[in-house]
Amino acid sequence: MLTNILLYLAAVDDEVTMAEAEYITECSDKLTAICDGANVMKSKAPINAADYVTSGEQPFTAQTGVSAVGEKKADAEASAQKAEELPKPSLEELMAELEELVGLGTVKREVKNLTNLIKVRKLREENGLPNSAMSLHMVFLGNPGTGKTTVARLMAGLYAAIGALSKGQLVEVDRSGLVAGYVGQTALKTQEVIQSALGGVLFIDEAYSLASGGENDFGREAIETLLKAMEDHRDDLVVIVAGYDEPMEKFINSNPGLQSRFNKYLYFPDYNGEELMAMFRMRCKKNGYRLTEEAETYAKEFFEDMYKNRDDNFGNGRDVRNRFEDIISRQANRLAAMEAPTKDDLMTITKEDFLVSAEE
């Protein structure tokens, strides 16, 4: 049906070019993939748009020997195959990476508990023992820069390592990645994202924005599409919704379907001054920098003050990253004025670098 409609539109100028036919075929293939993912029953095979080409214009296919649609598919398949060929990190490696994260003690314990629970459930299943129903979908609560996306990525890998998910990729989106501007397009757009996340974790940041509009807001269409996919693909898809505490609680309570599917919450607190300093040290070490004794003392006081005086715009780890980049820029300006900086000079951050950055 879609192919027929698009062919009628293409023929409005009494011509159907090969380029138009290839585009129609691409649209039809995308819709077919979405319908297959949603278990929609097939009626009959779509007609071949290329059979209705009327223009004598040399198509791109004839010039290159490669169909534009086929080329895109080949590229996508090659990328997927390449990703699958890359060695996946082991459970031990992922757990070690989780432990290396600064702070987040309660979050780490909850992730370990959940991983152990899933491992035992898999063992019971393999031994023919029953398991009670369990949802792996989660709500992450906390301010920006508190590690939510990082933990979601690790959880995707952990679930794959223990066999709860088939691939373990993380697909990160916000409202703009799910909601379209016209009636009917949001469901298609959301389905495409879901298809890319099958086998892994779909992470929706600021998910409350999907329910922030009125009754006719397209965000509600995205929510309904998500709820259906979470049911249809519950054995190979985990959805994590994230955002600020209060708006997220209102979002979950706005729809009974959301309440029933999201019953696990992880709270990500703001990093304190000591943790912010630890993150700064890690950045310095990773990038080959070291602090003078004066700079170390000043940095500790600076991050303590940053935490104590935080406001609604406090960015946690993002603020540490921004401060580090500012300091490196200031250090570069200082070294550029030197005639021949030594290796030690290139690695050293002074109190002066920190002071100038902080004052600005």
Rank of each mutant, 00 (worst) to 15 (best):
residue 172 E to I: 06
residue 215 E to H: 13
residue 207 A to R: 12
residue 209 S to Y: 07
residue 131 N to L: 11
residue 213 G to I: 13
residue 159 Y to W: 15
residue 159 Y to L: 15
residue 144 P to Y: 00
residue 142 G to V: 03
residue 170 L to R: 05
residue 148 K to R: 11
residue 175 R to V: 07
residue 137 H to F: 03
residue 160 A to N: 08
residue 201 V to F: 05
residue 175 R to P: 07
residue 143 N to H: 06
residue 150 T to N: 01
residue 159 Y to P: 10
residue 148 K to Q: 02
residue 217 D to V: 03
residue 203 F to N: 00
residue 161 A to G: 09
residue 150 T to P: 00
residue 184 G to I: 09
residue 195 Q to N: 15
residue 190 T to D: 05
residue 182 Y to E: 11
residue 150 T to F: 00
residue 181 G to H: 07
residue 148 K to V: 09
residue 199 G to Y: 11
residue 148 K to S: 01
residue 175 R to F: 06
residue 180 A to Q: 03
residue 170 L to N: 02
residue 185 Q to F: 08
residue 167 K to V: 15
residue 168 G to D: 06
residue 176 S to W: 05
residue 193 V to G: 01
residue 218 F to D: 03
residue 153 R to G: 11
residue 170 L to I: 01
residue 172 E to W: 02
residue 191 Q to E: 14
residue 156 A to T: 09
residue 187 A to D: 01
residue 161 A to V: 11
residue 160 A to T: 07
residue 177 G to L: 05
residue 187 A to P: 00
residue 197 A to Y: 00
residue 174 D to R: 06
residue 145 G to A: 08
residue 161 A to P: 10
residue 206 E to Q: 14
residue 206 E to L: 11
residue 168 G to R: 07
residue 183 V to D: 04
residue 159 Y to K: 09
residue 157 G to L: 08
residue 133 A to K: 14
residue 191 Q to Y: 00
residue 187 A to W: 01
residue 135 S to P: 04
residue 136 L to V: 06
residue 146 T to C: 01
residue 196 S to G: 01
residue 208 Y to G: 10
residue 214 G to F: 07
residue 185 Q to A: 12
residue 147 G to C: 05
residue 141 L to A: 07
residue 212 S to F: 10
residue 174 D to G: 08
residue 181 G to N: 13
residue 190 T to F: 02
residue 212 S to N: 13
residue 170 L to Y: 03
residue 142 G to W: 00
residue 141 L to M: 13
residue 211 A to N: 08
residue 217 D to Q: 06
residue 215 E to F: 13
residue 192 E to Q: 14
residue 158 L to Y: 10
residue 190 T to S: 05
residue 213 G to S: 15
residue 155 M to W: 04
residue 160 A to Y: 04
residue 203 F to H: 12
residue 137 H to R: 10
residue 167 K to L: 14
residue 132 S to A: 14
residue 146 T to N: 03
residue 161 A to Y: 08
residue 139 V to Y: 10
residue 152 A to L: 02
residue 136 L to M: 14
residue 182 Y to H: 15
residue 144 P to N: 04
residue 182 Y to V: 14
residue 189 K to M: 08
residue 133 A to V: 09
